[in-house]
Nucleic acid binder design. Structure first.
Length: 951
RNA sequence: GCUCGAGUGGUGGAAUUGGUAGACACGCAAGACUUAAAAUCUUGUGUCCAUUAGGACGUGCGGGUUCAAGUCCCGCCUCGAGUACCA
């Protein structure tokens, strides 16, 4: 549990997952487990900073208020997350609370950053190692024997390395460090004034705020997550997560296997490297396409094509990511005039540029096989390029054939082979002849790790010239005070505003790092800190992390699939590699709770206008009241109902005469501007009793509604329309847990949120049903009481009472263990209904009932537990075991079916054998009736299940 | 477009392994108590036909497997989520 503490506070959707995990935690405690059930806050982030820019208030102040309660600058009361949570009765261990924005927490986020900075990824041992081991290798062997995760492709010798200056060596190391500074194409969001990671962009705009994003080459910190691509993919098999989240991560990592192939360029020394997943189709290549940004483009372009190519490059650069995405259908490109040499056939193939080839994926160049790839086919078709067919008996006149079941032809040594074999052979030949090699490519990009913002972790980094160094002590670098939370005039991030003495550390270099870390830094490892939240010497003590291990049950939203969940897996693997923690995956079992949707109320309005021939002294439009109409009346109007129309006309005449009375000299007539166009207003959930609007409250809500007119139903009720929406302040459909706790109690809220439906499912909030759960708790109370007084019997429970209790114990245990939190509430209701009709007030029964109910309704369970004479809290009780003896029955009620249709029930002894059952049922008079004299073709008897006759 | 998930009464949902579809609630209707309201309790409530007895239909649509399908298989429709020229 790790919410972002926003100023809006909690609505009923937020606690859903917390309630479920609290039920689980309390249940496991009753079963004798030591349960770590913590809560903390992911308290760095954009909203607090945006608010700070607007109001000048320090984000630390507003964040504290959001958590602990208080008032904002305008005097509005902020309830505070903690206060709201406390009302619901969670069994969180508050001693373990962490906040990412507290120096004693981000000290360790900075520490982890330093470890990542001081590490490289050894592809040979397939794990991260300390950078010292790499430096040692460079000193003695250069980089030729090193197999490391890096984008650096040239080689250098030990002599080279040793001859380099400190600055040059550090620059080289950045190519290998797992946290590194480099000039990369980043997603720049001008509106937010910062770069964003790929997962922070949805549909081409920023996830927060929906601002446009552009590509920009900037010197930024990145995390070499791509080094872990294969492990992040492979280890998905070891965790118990939903298929959909695993699928999203798989797609995001985007592994594809194929070959890297080099094509010579006619007349140049340079080669074009391409990546292909279909090396088997290499004889189908009839042209090549480079991304417009490809480095070779300007070099190989012939003089007569130069103008066209440059114009195209310019146009492509001007296109935003979004334009490019929305414009997938248009085919565009330009011929460079240059030719590449096909490695096998030696034929000349034209080299084009086109923006369908992305500079950021693979090598930024493709070998185009128009017969096998639809994009290549479209391109070839558009520019009238040759489309050679290399598939036997396949028609490619209408489009490419991308299926992998064809037989290859016209392909020399690959002829008559199927795709799989041809691919293998092609890679073999490519490697043999030195044209390239087999290669695995990932979509996953290295993650940009710096943000040009104030409210985030400062880097423990300083610069000497342009060379970054990490501070070599463990002191926290605290966020310095600044005069404004905005970039400087020179475009530097807000931290550049901090004076040298505003920093709590002495900068050993020229300056400190001005960027801050992204939101996912602190949230990538918080679960580890929960194990040891106050440790001043380590991020987590080894014995603690060895004891608690990884998270058993993680309940959170599915929206973190490509962000938080990927990054924390990455950091966990890194910390595992360096032997700081004993596990490779942070979260064993994950449940993604569904969204609780708002149920917006709509108040329909008829537009009013003024009809007048004279513009002088006309009725003031602003004096017209709002005319609202009830839902059913609106329906009738839409159906051209005459009576409804008369009602509206009458109302308008009333309004008209009232205005004229008040001001006799005005001219014009009030009229409806449109009877069909009926706009609406979302109505505040607090003004409603069911679907009935409290008209007086609504009128007083806003001054512009004070003189509103309402057309109600015949019984005087004003009915609102309904629409299912996201719960949000702007839609006036927010239900706070506080109101419900006030009205019904925390136990009712807890049980009701669970009762609403399966945890994973999205479901609309409907407060009406809450009375059912509330009634159940009252009924439970009455089991223990006669009128006001406690009335408990110490008599021996009956068989029936024991059966009711024990089947409930069994079901509750089973349900909780399969994470079904809605069905136990029904089960409790059934049990209480049964015990009520049995008039059971036996201590032996009710005592156990209290215990099994306590995870769901801890307050009432504790109170009744105490009333039963227990002095210790119910928290320390033991979850009872069910006794199978009480559940076994002598008889089973058989449904007897004829041709699969159930006709009647017949109760027979459980022990009765197949043959006896058949004989008994055959002898039954009802059977005779349904057989109607016929002999059944077949009789199916499944003991203790069913009997079915086939006639 | 591709990938994944989901479609059950008026509503939220239950049916865990193919074995009585609609548990438990809400809502609605009728009744009891009450001057009245609230609270509480009782009864009914998938649709259609039938006075009753009973019958037919019924888990998005069309087909299939099976003695038996909400559940398994094939094809389609709708909604939701992710992704977006990934070579």
């Amino acid at each position: 549990m790790f919410p972002y503490p926003s100023g809006a506070g909690l609505h009923v959707g937020h606690p859903l997952g917390y309630i479920a995990s609290d039920v689980y935690a309390r249940y496991k405690r009753l079963c004798g487990f030591n349960v770590l059930h913590p809560m903390g806050y992911d308290s760095f982030g954009l909203p607090a900073e945006q608010y700070a820019i607007q109001t000048g208030q320090h984000p630390a102040v507003t964040t504290k208020t959001n958590i602990e309660g208080g008032t904002d600058k305008d005097g509005n009361v902020i309830p505070g997350y903690r206060n709201q949570l406390d009302k619901i009765g969670f069994s969180f261990d508050w001693d373990r609370e962490v906040r990412t924005s507290e120096p004693n927490y981000y000290k360790w986020t900075q520490w982890i950053f330093k470890q990542i900075f001081n590490s490289w990824y050894n592809n040979e041992s397939d794990k991260a190692e300390k950078i010292d081991t790499l430096i040692e290798k460079f000193k003695t062997e250069g980089n030729t024997t090193v197999k490391a995760a890096t984008d650096f492709e040239d080689s250098f010798s030990a002599a080279d390395w040793n001859s380099w200056s400190e600055e040059e060596q550090q620059a080289m190391l950045l190519n290998y460090r797992l946290a590194y500074l480099s000039d990369t194409w980043v997603n720049w969001c001008p509106a937010l004034g910062t770069v964003l990671a790929n997962d922070e962009i949805k549909n081409g705009v920023s996830e927060r705020g929906g601002h446009p994003v552009e590509q920009k080459l900037m010197r930024q910190w990145s995390m070499r997550i791509t080094a872990y691509a294969e492990r992040l993919l492979k280890d998905l098999d070891t965790v118990d997560w939903t298929d959909s989240i695993k699928e999203i991560q798989k797609n995001w990592i985007g592994k594809s296997q194929g070959a890297a192939v080099f094509f010579d360029v006619d007349g140049f020394e340079d080669k074009i490297e391409v990546f292909t997943t279909r090396p088997d189709t290499i004889y189908g290549v009839s042209f090549m396409v480079l991304a417009p940004e490809h480095e070779l483009v300007s070099k190989i372009t012939t003089a007569d094509q130069k103008d066209k190519i440059e114009a195209y490059q310019k146009a492509a650069a001007a296109k935003s990511e979004r334009d490019r995405m929305s414009d997938v259908k248009t085919i565009s490109g330009e011929f460079t005039g240059a030719y590449a040499i096909h490695p096998f056939s030696g034929e000349k193939v034209p080299v084009w540029i086109g923006d369908y080839v992305l500079a950021t994926y693979g090598t930024g160049a493709v070998m185009s096989v128009p017969c096998g790839d639809q994009r290549d086919w479209d391109f070839a078709n558009h520019f009238k390029i040759d489309i050679p067919n290399i598939f036997k008996d396949v028609d490619i006149s209408e489009g490419a054939y991308a299926e992998k079941d064809a037989v290859i032809t016209n392909s020399d040594f690959l002829n008559d082979l199927k795709v799989k074999k041809a691919t293998k052979l092609a890679i073999y030949e490519i490697e043999q002849k030195g044209f390239g090699k087999g290669k695995t490519q990932y979509k996953l990009r290295n993650a940009v790790f710096s943000r040009q913002r104030y409210w985030g972790e400062p880097f423990p980094v300083y610069y000497k010239g342009d060379t970054p160094y990490v501070l070599d002590n463990n002191d926290v670098v605290e966020l310095p005070e600044v005069d404004k939370y905005l970039p400087t005039e020179d475009g530097d991030p807000p931290l550049a505003r901090a004076n040298k003495d505003a920093w709590n550390v002495d900068c050993p270099g020229d300056r400190m790092e001005f960027n801050t870390m992204p939101g996912w830094a602190g949230s990538s490892w918080y679960f580890l800190r929960y194990m040891d939240p106050t440790n001043e010497n380590e991020f987590v003590a080894k014995d603690k992390v060895n004891y608690w291990q990884n998270v058993d049950l993680y309940i959170g939203g599915a929206e973190h699939a490509t962000g938080h969940l990927l990054y924390s897996r990455f950091w966990t693997k890194f910390l595992y590699d360096l032997d700081y923690i004993p596990f490779e995956e942070p979260f064993k079992k994950m449940i993604n709770q569904g969204m609780i949707q708002g149920n917006s109320a709509l108040v329909y309005r008829i537009g009013l206008g003024v009809l007048s021939t004279n513009k002088n002294n006309q009725i003031d439009l602003k004096s017209l009241p709002n005319l609202f109409i009830s839902k059913d009346l609106k329906k009738r109007l839409e159906n051209e109902d005459l009576e409804a129309n008369i009602l509206v006309d009458k109302k308008i005449r009333e309004i008209n005469s009232r205005i004229k009375e008040a001001n006799p000299n005005v001219n014009g007539e009030v009229t409806t501007t449109s009877r069909k166009y009926i706009p609406f207003r979302h109505s505040d959930i607090n003004f409603l009793e069911g679907d009935i609007l409290d008209i007086e409250k609504f009128k007083n809500w806003r001054t512009e509604y004070n003189n509103s007119e309402f057309l109600t139903e015949e019984n005087g009720d004003f009915i609102v329309g309904r629409e299912i929406d996201k719960m949000s302040k702007s839609k006036y459909n927010v239900q706070t847990p506080d109101d419900l706790v006030e009205k019904y109690g925390a136990d009712t809220l807890r049980c009701y949120e669970m009762f609403l439906g399966p945890l994973e499912q999205h479901k609309p909030w409907d407060v009406q049903g809450i009375t059912g759960v509330h009634g159940f708790l009252k009924k439970l109370w009455r089991l223990f009481h006669n009128d006001e007084a406690l009335d408990i019997s110490d008599a021996e429970p009956t068989k029936e009472e024991l059966k009711s209790l024990h089947k409930t114990i069994k079901k509750i245990k089973e349900d909780i263990e399969r994470y079904s939190f809605n069905t136990p509430v029904s089960t409790f209701m059934i049990c209480v209904n049964e015990l009520t009709s049995l008039k059971c007030n036996k201590r032996a029964i009710l005592s156990d009932l209290c215990i099994i109910l306590s995870p769901f309704a801890p307050h009432i369970a504790e109170e009744l537990w105490n009333k039963l004479g227990n002095t210790e809290s119910i928290t320390y009780a033991v979850f009872p075991e069910h006794n199978e003896e009480y559940l076994t029955e002598a008889n089973h009620k058989y449904p007897v079916s004829f041709n699969g249709k159930m006709r009647f029930m017949l109760e027979l002894p459980k022990a009765m054998g197949k043959a006896d059952i058949e004989a008994t049922v055959m002898a039954n008079e009802q059977t005779a009736k349904y057989l109607d004299g016929k002999t059944p073709k077949k009789v199916i008897v499944v003991p203790n299940k069913i009997v079915n006759f086939v006639i």
